[in-house]
């Protein structure tokens, strides 16, 4: 039965022993977009024991250029990504136990799903979920691998609770209004390069070759031809609220979460960001117009027309997502525009 893994077992640092370890491991992957598709495929082909996939979106035509698990048929059926991913991965390797969860990776859900998990793979598209994931990983002492990309720029960092600095040590707070794949685009090679870094580290962790881990924060720009490897030994912050000695896991508490509610009697969801802060409406409007979104506005708000929805964003970051009553979908649309 190990025939299919013969080449991987021939690779000395893995071997038969490593393959058996891999088969006994459970990976939780948050997100099944571009990073999730490629990470999921590599780990499934590699023969991980169990893979749990969480995603809140359904497959759309604009995903097909880079989200390698999905097909035109998935788009026609508007299949949830977690479901479509599970189907495709099962066809690739029926040995792997697959578990698809359709929904938003809230702190409550993460708390349920991490039980018995050996590694968390970050394939999400926003910092709010990543910071919650970072807190959960430290609460339960589970390694996780940060990966993110936009345009031709990508980055990855392996976080081992108790050993390395954490994401909150690096960022200190939730960055406001980041660049996203929906606003500045993304090319497939960037995704693959991030995934190559994530899955190599994942394999090291899963076969327990701790010595081989990378330790540096890697970032690269495949179009501007830049590579950087940043040493992180000075980055650990003892006062960090996520990994320090007086930790509170701030991103698991309600007040630090994005608030969303369906407005009574309307096909509209209101979103309030977790971090108060002025959004530069002029900059956002100029940028969205330049990439062919239909944007109208005044000094107080912007109105953006999308395929099925209209989004109104106010100066304080609050937004109304018209054309849906689905909270997870509304949060997804918001984070795709504002990061």
């Amino acid at each position: 039965m190990y025939e299919r893994y013969s080449r991987q077992m021939l690779f000395a640092p893995i071997g038969k022993n490593g393959q058996e370890k891999l088969r006994a491991k459970h990976v939780l992957m948050i997100g099944a977009g571009a990073l999730g598709s490629s990470n999921g495929e590599i780990l499934t082909r590699a023969g991980v024991g169990k893979l749990t996939i969480v995603d809140r979106d359904y497959v759309e035509a604009s995903n097909l250029q880079r989200q390698q698990l999905y097909t035109e048929e998935d788009v026609l059926q508007k299949l949830p990504k977690a479901v479509a991913a599970e189907r495709r991965l099962r066809a690739i390797n029926s040995d792997v136990e697959l578990c698809a969860v359709v929904g938003d990776a809230t702190p409550e859900m993460l708390d349920e799903l991490v039980k018995g998990v050996d590694l968390i793979l970050d394939a999400t598209d926003n910092f709010e979920t990543r910071m919650a994931l970072n807190d959960i990983a430290h609460k339960y002492q589970i390694p996780w691998i940060y990966g993110a990309c936009v345009g031709s720029f990508g980055m990855s960092f392996t976080i081992i609770p108790g050993k390395t600095p954490c994401l909150n040590c690096l960022l200190k707070s939730l960055p406001v209004q980041g660049m996203t794949c929906d606003t500045v685009g993304i090319i497939a090679p960037t995704v693959q390069m991030v995934v190559a870094h994530q899955t190599a580290e994942a394999l090291k962790i899963l076969v327990e070759d701790w010595e081989a881990l990378r330790h540096s924060f890697v970032s690269f720009d495949l179009w501007r031809n830049q590579y950087s490897s940043m040493k992180m030994s000075r980055a650990k912050d003892e006062s960090c609220l996520s990994c320090g000695s007086e930790r509170t896991y701030p991103y698991l508490s309600r007040e630090n979460l994005m608030k969303s509610e369906v407005l009574c009697g309307r096909d509209t969801v209101q979103i309030r960001p977790s971090k108060e802060g002025e959004v530069d409406l002029n900059e956002l409007a100029a940028h969205l117009s330049s990439i062919h979104y239909e944007v109208k506005g005044n000094p107080y708000l912007l109105s953006i027309e999308m395929e099925a929805n209209r989004i109104v964003i106010f100066k304080d970051g609050r937004a109304l997502i018209h054309g849906t009553k689905d909270l997870a979908q509304a949060r997804s649309i918001y984070q795709r525009l504002l990061g």
């Binding site: 997100g31 977009g33 571009a34 990073l35 999730g36 970050d122 394939a123 999400t124 598209d125 926003n126 910092f127 990543r130 990966g147 993110a148 990309c149 936009v150 720029f153 990508g154 980055m155 690096l170 960022l171 960055p175 980041g178 660049m179 996203t180 794949c181 993304i186 970032s219 950087s228 940043m230 984070q335 990061g339």
Partner: peptide
């Protein structure tokens, strides 16, 4: 000194 902007896409 190098400045590296964190990104959130995925």
């Amino acid at each position: 000194v190098a400045f590296i902007p964190p990104v959130s896409g995925g």
